[in-house]
Structures are given as C-alpha cells and as structure tokens.
Computed example of a mutant assay.
Amino acid sequence: MFMTTGDLQRSHMIKTVVSATEHTMFESDAIDQFEGFDDLIDKVKADLMQKAAANDGDGLIYVNFNTEVVRMSVAPRFLVVTGYGTVVKLA
C-alpha cells in the first residue's frame, strides 16, 4: 500500500475517493497544543489506508490534508484534521 500527494506515473485504474477525519479537544490549561496535529495526521493516514484496502486498492494518489482549529461558542476548542485521496488499483 502506498500514499502520494501527486500523480502516479504508471498504468492504474481509479477505484473511488475516500476521506477521513480525526479530532481532539484542547486542554484548557495549555496555551499552544499544535503538536497534536502530528498525531491526528498519523491517525488520518491510517484511516485512509484502511479505506483504500477495503475498496480493493493498491494505494492512494493526490492525498491532501486540511488542519483547522474549531472554536465553539460555549464548548472548548478542537484540533481537526481531514484527509482525502483517490484510491487506485495498479494495472
């Protein structure tokens, strides 16, 4: 199973597009917790790989990640990572 942010320079068939989202809540006593994005990205990568395997894919191309801090009006802040990519089967 492979994952790339670009194109694949060999024959392949596009199977589907998959996405995954993970989040975590900010600790109220800490000021800067952006290192939490690293763990969330790793979790999203694992989720994308599982979804690619479930769709009989050999890998993912054009993988992208979006990171954001979500602020709710009365609730705490959340770190959110969303990833998506195209599942392909090698010819």
Rank of each mutant, 00 (worst) to 15 (best):
T21E: 15
V81E: 02
D58Q: 05
T16D: 14
L79F: 10
A30G: 00
H23K: 11
V69C: 07
T21R: 08
V80Y: 01
D29F: 14
V80L: 12
D42S: 14
F78M: 12
T67C: 05
F34C: 07
M49L: 14
F78W: 12
E35T: 08
H23M: 15
F34G: 05
T82E: 15
G59T: 04
K43N: 12
T67M: 15
G59L: 07
F37L: 00
K51Q: 13
V70A: 14
Q50L: 13
V70R: 07
Y84W: 10
D38F: 02
V17Q: 13
I14P: 11
E27R: 03
M13S: 09
V87H: 13
G59F: 00
A75K: 09
M13W: 09
S19M: 12
P76K: 08
I14V: 15
D58G: 08
T86L: 09
L40F: 06
M3Q: 09
V81R: 00
S73I: 13
Q33Y: 01
T24N: 05
D38W: 01
P76V: 07
I41G: 01
D29A: 06
F65A: 06
P76R: 05
Q50K: 15
L90F: 04
L8W: 00
K51D: 02
G59N: 01
V70P: 02
A75L: 02
R77V: 00
A54E: 14
Q33R: 02
S28K: 06
V69M: 10
D29P: 00
A91K: 14
G6V: 09
F37P: 01
L8N: 05
E35Q: 04
D42F: 12
K89L: 06
R77W: 02
F2Q: 11
A20I: 02
P76T: 08
V44H: 11
S19R: 04
K45N: 15
D29W: 14
R71W: 12
Y62D: 13
A30C: 02
A91M: 13
Y62W: 07
D29M: 05
D42I: 10
L90G: 03
F26R: 03
K45R: 11
D42Y: 08
M1S: 11
V18I: 08
T82K: 09
D47A: 12
F34V: 04
F65C: 14
R77C: 02
K45T: 10
T21G: 03
F65T: 00
V87R: 14
A52R: 06
T86D: 07
N66K: 11
M49C: 10
Q9S: 06
F65S: 04
L60D: 00
T67S: 15
R10W: 07
Y84E: 14
T16L: 02
F78L: 05
T82N: 08
A54H: 05
M3E: 02
F37H: 07
G59Q: 06
T67L: 03
M72F: 12
M49F: 04
N55D: 12
G6L: 15
I61K: 04
Q33H: 01
T4L: 03
M3C: 01
A52W: 06
V74R: 06
D56M: 11
V18H: 03
T5E: 13
L90Q: 05
D56L: 02
S19V: 01
E22C: 08
V70H: 09
D32M: 09
S73E: 13
V74H: 14
D29I: 03
S19Q: 15
A54D: 08
A30M: 03
V74P: 03
